[in-house]
Amino acid sequence: MPLGVGDRAPDFTLDGSPRASYRVSEMIGTPLVLAFYPEDHSPVCSIQLRAYSDGMADFSRLGAMVWGVSPQDPQVHSDFAEKYGINFPLLSDGDKAVAKAYEVLGPLGFYRRSIFVIDRFGIISYCHRTTAGLTYKPTSALLEAIQEAEAKSSGR
């Protein structure tokens, strides 16, 4: 059965931009959106990550963080973030181990645009994997998923 809603989010540590190491287990207590995307500087990825960046005030209002994850190295991420005004961390999964753990690799080993919302307890509360990478989940859908996860977790 594939990794999905209700499963504990696989832990990982990745380097990213801004220069730091990022670890899922250190985010316990904070809702986290993982946005897996194929490539920096590509048209759809640029639009998607700018949209999430434009919504950071709304994510912050909910106490949530957003991390972008793709195979490019931290310097490429840094250049991309600066060019497009991306204001959340972009993590480097060069060996694609995290993509494998989250089951977001397509048949040829390329990243499939995918979103995971991890609740404050480290449980996946929302998951969406695309088969064709030309669309992405809008910020409003992610904010709704975070609100629903928070509502459910407050009843635990």
Results as ranks from 00 to 15, higher is better:
Met1Cys: 05
Met1Gly: 09
Leu3Met: 06
Gly4Ala: 11
Val5Cys: 08
Gly6Phe: 03
Gly6Arg: 04
Gly6Thr: 07
Gly6Ala: 12
Asp7Phe: 08
Asp11Val: 09
Asp11Phe: 06
Asp11Pro: 10
Phe12Trp: 07
Thr13His: 03
Leu14Ile: 05
Leu14Pro: 06
Leu14Thr: 05
Gly16Phe: 01
Ser17Gly: 02
Ser17Leu: 05
Pro18Asp: 05
Arg19Gln: 14
Ser21Thr: 14
Ser21Cys: 05
Ser21Met: 08
Ser21Tyr: 02
Tyr22Val: 09
Arg23Gln: 14
Arg23Met: 06
Val24Pro: 01
Ser25Met: 09
Ser25Cys: 06
Ile28His: 06
Gly29Asn: 10
Gly29Leu: 08
Thr30His: 14
Pro31Ile: 06
Val33Ala: 10
Leu34Gly: 07
Ala35Val: 08
Ala35Leu: 05
Phe36Arg: 07
Pro38Met: 09
Pro43Thr: 13
Val44Pro: 06
Gln48Leu: 09
Gln48Tyr: 13
Leu49Gln: 11
Arg50Tyr: 01
Arg50Asn: 02
Ala51Cys: 09
Ala51Ser: 13
Ala51Thr: 11
Tyr52Pro: 11
Asp54Gly: 11
Ala57Val: 05
Ala57Gly: 03
Ala57Cys: 03
Asp58Met: 10
Arg61Phe: 10
Ala64Cys: 07
Met65Ala: 15
Val66Trp: 08
Val69Asp: 03
Ser70Pro: 09
Pro71Asn: 04
Pro71Trp: 13
Gln72Asp: 15
Pro74Trp: 04
Gln75Phe: 10
Val76Ile: 12
Asp79Ala: 15
Phe80Ile: 03
Phe80Gly: 02
Ala81Asn: 01
Glu82Pro: 00
Lys83Leu: 11
Lys83Asp: 04
Gly85Pro: 07
Gly85Trp: 03
Phe88Ala: 01
Pro89Leu: 03
Leu90Asp: 02
Asp93Glu: 09
Asp93Pro: 13
Gly94Met: 13
Gly94Phe: 07
Lys96Phe: 10
Lys96Glu: 01
Ala97Gly: 13
Ala97Arg: 13
Ala97Asn: 14
Ala99Val: 04
Ala99Tyr: 12
Lys100Tyr: 01
Lys100Glu: 15
Tyr102Val: 05
Glu103Lys: 09
Glu103Arg: 10
Pro107Gln: 11
Pro107His: 10
Leu108Glu: 14
Gly109Val: 10
Gly109Leu: 08
Gly109Ala: 10
Phe110Gly: 10
Phe110Lys: 05
Phe110His: 09
Tyr111Trp: 08
Arg112Asp: 07
Arg113Met: 07
Ser114Trp: 02
Ser114Cys: 03
Ser114Ala: 14
Ile115Gly: 00
Ile115Thr: 15
Ile115Lys: 00
Ile118Lys: 02
Asp119His: 00
Arg120Val: 00
Phe121Ser: 03
Phe121Asn: 01
Gly122Pro: 00
Gly122Glu: 01
Ile123Arg: 04
Ile123Val: 15
Ser125Arg: 06
Ser125His: 00
Cys127Leu: 00
His128Ser: 13
His128Asn: 14
Arg129Phe: 00
Ala132Tyr: 07
Gly133Met: 04
Gly133Arg: 08
Thr135Asn: 12
Thr135His: 09
Lys137Gln: 14
Thr139Val: 15
Ser140Gly: 09
Ser140Ile: 12
Ala141Lys: 05
Leu143Val: 11
Leu143Tyr: 06
Glu144Met: 10
Glu144Ile: 00
Ala145Lys: 04
Glu150Gly: 05
Ala151Cys: 02
Ala151Lys: 13
Ala151Met: 09
Ala151Gly: 04
Lys152Pro: 00
Ser154Asp: 08
